[in-house]
Structure formats: structure tokens, C-alpha cells
């Protein structure tokens, strides 16, 4: 099988950057990593990339393949090209992290964010003589998160991190879930409080990119959503994210649709004048184009507020959704 590669090159010693193109012959079953190793070993020894286990367990060979972060060892060439031998595979280093050389990036940003979430078990009380007794379901749930091999793919392609370097980002938040949801950990509340602050769980825009690029099924965004639920349940609601959720829910239960007039004050806080002033021009523009209907001027829940037709059915949906909440696991004696 013919394989065409276009690889982003960075030579830090001469300040040069560009692309190298390679055309090689590979067996049908090859992965992109096999092809890159073939290039490095027999065509061009200056090509730098990290790789080790060849089986998606060490997390070394993450890179962008046709503009999407992937593990090279899990990228079957035939799948990437769709069998089209003329398809030139574009191989680039991960983004959101500085490039050291060719496909090698500095992952310090990645690990510094992991360290930010106090990533170690903090049990309360005396250590048991034997193991902690906990439900298997809880351990299996956490194992899905422990599946994370810290490859950095989710951090590379995170769309929030791209615009806000302070965002704790998907991998670290998934790691945080692993402790917050661990029945052996004794600091769940403190963890959730910290995670509810700026740059934490409420800053995710739910673009789903981390779920799509994660090669291990960790689905970081889903872990972030679970953390949000846990934080809400724990009563940690004095923040814009939680308030937004509350006014959203209240608006739906009350009127069946979003109350655009009250969403913003409800989210940032009714008395948060500076923030409301910042948003005022936007609100005026919405008003001008008819996106703040007069019918919604009465706040949700107040007498006379606007109601959609068929509210019973909406409320039933909300009730059923509430029943889906999972029960938290605990340590037994």
C-alpha cells in the first residue's frame, strides 16, 4: 500500500519550520505510527516523535492527524485515508501546547493542570487494616476514568483552552471526577467547591471535542457534566454556572421555554451591576431585533408569568429526568 505523508517540521536550533513530504510503501494493516517509524528509521532519522508501547497504553504518540488529535498507534492508515492511496495524510504536533521539535510538544501545561486538581486520594479517618469496602460498580465507573493515559489529545483540541489558558481543561477535570466520585475520598465537598470556581467545571462549553478525540473512551466532557451535577446536589450554587442552570430549569418548569429576559440577570446575579452593564449593549441589540419579548418581562415563577401550551407534558419530562440521577457510592464497614 502506498502511503503519502505531509509532516509538520520544526527545527528549534535553526528556527526553521515547514513541511516534509514522504511517500513510502507499507503493509495494508499498518498504523500511522508504523509509517512514521518506517520514515524515521529508513528515510529520515531527523524526524522527531515520541512513541513507545504501540498499543495505546503509554500515551506517547498523540499528534494531529488530518487536523484532529489522535494516537498514531491507533490510527490505521486505511481508516484515515478511506483506502485512497492518493490521500496525503497531514501530520502535525498537538496544539494548545508549545512545540519542542517536529511532532514533540512540551506537555508541562498538561501536567500542571493535572496537579491543579489535587490529584491524589485524600481519605478521612483511620486507614482500614484491609482494603476499603466499596461497591464494584463504583470501581468500574472510576476505572473508565483511570483509562486515561494522559496522551493530551483532549487538551490539544479543547476549544475553550484555545481562548482561555486558565481553563483547567478536560483531562484534569476528568481526573478530578476520579477523586470526587471515589467513595474512599473524604474531601468531595472541598473538591467540588474548588472545581466550581472560575476556570473549572462551569467554563466548559460542551463542544464535545474532547469526547470525540479521546482514544480511550474517557469522555471527559461527560465527567465534567457529572461533576456539575454533584456540585449542584452538594448545594454549591453560588456561581454563575449553577445560577444559570437554576434559572434555566426554573424557566422551563414555569413556562416551558427559556425566558430570555431573565436568563442573564438570573445567571450573573440580579445585583451584579458591573456585569449587567457590560452586557447591556448586547441586551439592547436583542431588544431591537425582538429577541426579548415583552411577554417574558414577568420573571419565571411570579404570578402572571408567560406559559407555553401543554405545560403538563413539559413538567412530566422534567420529573422523569430527575429520576435518572445516579446514587452515590459509599464505603461500607
Amino acid at each position: 500500500m502506498k502511503v503519502k505523508l505531509k509532516v509538520r517540521r520544526t527545527d528549534p536550533e535553526h528556527g526553521a519550520a515547514g513541511y516534509s513530504q514522504y511517500a513510502i510503501d507499507m503493509p495494508e494493516s499498518s498504523t500511522l505510527l508504523d509509517a512514521l517509524i518506517q520514515v524515521r528509521e529508513y528515510e529520515d532519522g531527523t524526524l522527531a516523535l515520541r512513541c513507545s508501547c504501540r498499543s495505546a497504553i503509554c500515551g506517547s504518540c498523540s499528534m494531529r492527524v488530518d487536523r484532529r488529535a489522535r494516537l498514531a498507534c491507533r490510527a490505521k492508515i486505511i481508516t484515515v485515508t478511506g483506502g485512497d492511496e492518493e490521500h496525503e495524510i497531514l501530520v502535525e504536533p498537538m496544539t494548545n501546547m508549545p512545540v519542542i521539535k517536529d511532532l514533540i510538544v512540551d506537555q508541562e501545561l498538561f501536567f500542571s493542570k493535572i496537579r491543579q486538581v489535587d490529584p491524589y486520594l485524600q481519605p478521612l479517618g483511620p486507614v482500614p487494616e484491609r482494603e476499603y469496602r466499596v461497591p464494584n460498580e463504583a470501581m468500574i465507573d472510576l476505572t473508565h476514568t483511570m483509562n486515561c493515559i494522559m496522551c493530551g489529545a483532549c487538551v490539544s483540541d479543547c476549544t475553550v483552552l484555545e481562548v482561555d489558558k486558565n481553563f483547567i481543561a478536560p483531562a484534569a477535570l476528568a481526573k478530578a471526577y476520579r477523586f470526587a466520585a471515589d467513595p474512599r475520598d473524604g474531601h468531595t465537598h472541598e473538591r467540588l467547591e474548588k472545581l466550581s470556581e472560575y476556570s473549572g467545571i462551569w467554563d466548559c462549553t460542551r463542544c464535545n471535542m474532547c469526547v470525540e478525540v479521546c482514544p480511550k473512551g474517557v469522555a471527559p466532557m461527560n465527567r465534567i457534566l457529572q461533576l456539575r451535577e454533584m456540585a449542584m446536589e452538594a448545594g454549591i450554587q453560588n456561581n454563575a454556572g449553577a445560577r444559570h442552570t437554576n434559572i434555566f430549569t426554573k424557566s422551563i418548569i414555569d413556562g416551558g421555554r427559556l425566558n430570555e429576559v431573565w436568563m442573564l440577570p438570573g445567571s450573573v446575579g440580579m445585583f451584579n451591576v458591573p456585569r449587567l452593564l457590560v452586557e447591556a449593549p448586547g441586551a439592547l441589540r436583542m431588544l431591537r431585533v425582538g429577541k426579548l419579548p415583552l411577554a417574558q418581562a414577568i420573571p419565571p415563577g411570579a404570578p402572571g408569568s408567560h406559559k407555553m401550551q401543554g405545560m403538563d407534558r413539559v413538567r412530566n419530562v422534567v420529573k422523569k429526568a430527575a429520576l435518572l440521577k445516579p446514587k452515590r457510592a459509599e464505603v461500607t464497614d
Binding site: 484491609r130 470501581m139 468500574i140 483511570m146
Partner: peptide
């Protein structure tokens, strides 16, 4: 285990 390894369990939690 005490450091946090998520060992698989039996139904009784051991």
C-alpha cells in the same frame, strides 16, 4: 489500594 488503586471488587465490596 489505600493510595487509591481502583481494584475490581466482589459483590460484598472486598
Amino acid at each position: 489500594e489505600h493510595w487509591g488503586v481502583v481494584f475490581s471488587r466482589k459483590p460484598d465490596g472486598h
